[in-house]
Design a protein around this nucleic acid. Structure first.
Lengths: 342, 342
DNA sequence: GCGTATCTGACATACGTATGTCAGGTCAAA
DNA sequence: TTTGACCTGACATACGTATGTCAGATACGC
């Protein structure tokens, strides 16, 4: 009772191997009648193409492109590193990936990058960038060319991408809210909320989740309006000192920003790290060491290794027309505290 | 500059394909001189065997056996389900797995199961069972027969297994301690600690981690001696009522046990679920719904899907003599609260 | 009946590896 | 010199699939 092969299909359908091949690979020149016979045989025997053998015969190479923001983000750095590591491990599986760094704040640059993709030399694209109308159109154009496209980290809900590889950011915001609410031992107080830019879809969604849960479960804790830091040390220093002065009841900080180093520096100088509950996003060298030192209380994280491996698996499955294991591709919202940091 | 093949090796080493094959597959009948030449060529060209092509030629089947505890544990149930799902997805990769349920409390039964394994009909074993001298010997015997063996969930430190697929349980205990300490809003109080059996290695390690962190960070919180429940509803009811009576300052519960349903029932009846901080292990239907209802405050979890996929990947790599990606195989200690439950 | 377009099957070759057979080679011991 | 042990290379076949060529079959309009 071995796995059926194309030969079994041919025998079962009463046609030749060539015909089976023409049907399976959607080539023309087969009567509808025979197409049906083959499909019925496939169905009956439960045939699944052996992708490994097929790839061997085709000398297939999966060439994927990752479009990532440039700039000095530790998160993107760890993401790139994880990608390179994953690809090194998948080299035997004929998977290669190239990274294209673009200025994510410039929609035009993203469009240019996407338009430069030659569908004949690339088999799939993963994109981490904010969605603008231009970007959306460029993606639709790629999809028309038959390329699978997945959104990475930040969703692109209007671009008809094949898959979103990332966490539910509204839930991530709620998770942060619950941790803040439970770690803060008072019933009343205000919470400083910072991010790089409120243009990014993930920031918007996280803020939404934060407010929702705070209002519901911790009405005494008031998250202040989101402050945009734009990765600017001067601005960060200014924001922190105003916040400390204006809000004597400050009890916690929720940072969705990437510039946590400068933020921590200011708070350290103000000697406020011990009495403030600090929840940040993404595990980087900065947040890890702050966790270990007890300066940051919890980090909301998505596993970069899981992200890139999932993106690669999904892209490969789409290229091969195979289905995916949803449970394996769900990216979890991970909570990291000092003790499960490793 | 494609990936080198055996042909390239043969040309580079100046020998025939047959000789290359004899060297690569460690067959006898090659002069040491030529063995060296082939090995040098492999090194120089960076040859890696194409496992897919090799498996195709060999018609290889990976037949793995999972030895799991029987009995009505929801955790083992979800583990089995995850295994079946993973195997269904890997069927095209020639991976099959069979589950053998044994009475994990009976070392003799485990040994019998392990001895029944025919190395000719099985390519690797994953074991979730407590380590006893008999079990250790049976495992060593399997390894002598050339079978790769991995420990699942609970480590087998003296059995010389190829790999441990699971979390660091001492860290899991510390993680639970930190959550309890921060969620409990008082500085003083006692904590009820329950498990099924203190014989299981994971329970011992978790308790150790718990005590370590509590003493260090929350000296006012006193974890009571571990109570063994043995999955017995009567015993559970009795333990809970004594604990509630004797310890008026009870502030939290740490459950490493599987019988959380009965435990929750008792506390529900005593109306103590709202003021007690409850931290449990493993996400099951019972703990999930208790999390959603706010009865359990946090669950320490290891992803069963990740566990089984990791075990399968590692076993396959061992069979093929390939290396593994350590980052991918590290099982994380996951913290689940209501908001990141999904 | 013809020519033509469309369909079908037989066959060959390839992908990278595994495995077996067999003739011929070298070299030491008999 | 012969025998045998050992080593080597040439060649064939296979795994499951992809792809191409080409002869022959079928059906159609005329």
């Amino acid at each position: 009772m071995n796995k059926p092969t194309v030969h079994d299909i041919a025998r079962e359908a009463g046609v030749s191997l060539s015909t089976v091949d023409r049907v399976l690979n959607e080539r023309s020149g087969v009567r509808a009648f025979n197409v049906e016979k083959v499909k019925a045989a496939v169905e009956k025997l439960g045939y699944v193409r052996d992708t490994n053998a097929a790839n061997l015969a085709k000398k297939r190479q999966y060439r994927f492109l990752f479009v990532l923001p440039d700039g000095a983000s530790q998160f993107v750095d760890t993401l790139s590193a994880a990608l390179n590591e994953a690809v090194a491990g998948l080299l035997i599986e004929r998977v290669t990936a190239q990274i294209l760094h673009v200025d994510a704040t410039d929609p035009h640059a993203i469009v240019l990058a996407l338009e430069s993709i030659d569908p004949a030399r690339c088999d799939g694209v993963a994109i981490m960038a904010p969605e603008t109308p231009q970007v959306r159109d460029a993606i639709l154009h790629l999809k028309e060319a038959g390329l699978p496209v997945v959104a990475l980290v930040s969703n692109l809900p209007n671009s008809n991408v094949d898959h979103f590889v990332g966490v539910n950011n509204r839930q991530a915001g709620k998770t942060a809210a619950l941790l803040l609410g439970r770690f803060i031992r008072r019933d009343h107080g205000s919470i400083l909320v910072v991010t790089n830019s409120m243009l990014a879809r993930d920031s918007i969604e996280r803020r939404y989740g934060l407010d929702e849960l705070m209002a519901q479960d911790f009405p005494g804790l008031g998250p202040l309006p989101t402050v945009e830091l734009h990765d600017d040390p001067h601005r960060i220093a200014q924001v922190v000192s105003t916040a400390l002065q204006t809000h004597a009841d400050l009890a916690g900080i929720y940072s969705m920003a990437t510039g946590n180093a400068a933020l921590l520096d200011c708070l350290r100088r103000a000697k406020r790290l011990n009495d403030l509950v600090f929840v940040a996003h993404e595990l980087t060298p900065v947040t890890s060491s702050a966790l270990l030192d007890g300066e940051i209380d919890a980090v909301i994280k998505q596993d970069v290794g899981h992200l890139v491996r999932s993106a690669l698996r999904v892209l490969r499955a789409k290229v091969d027309g195979m289905s995916i294991l949803p449970a394996q591709e769900r990216i979890r919202i991970e909570i990291v505290i000092r003790e499960n940091l490793l």
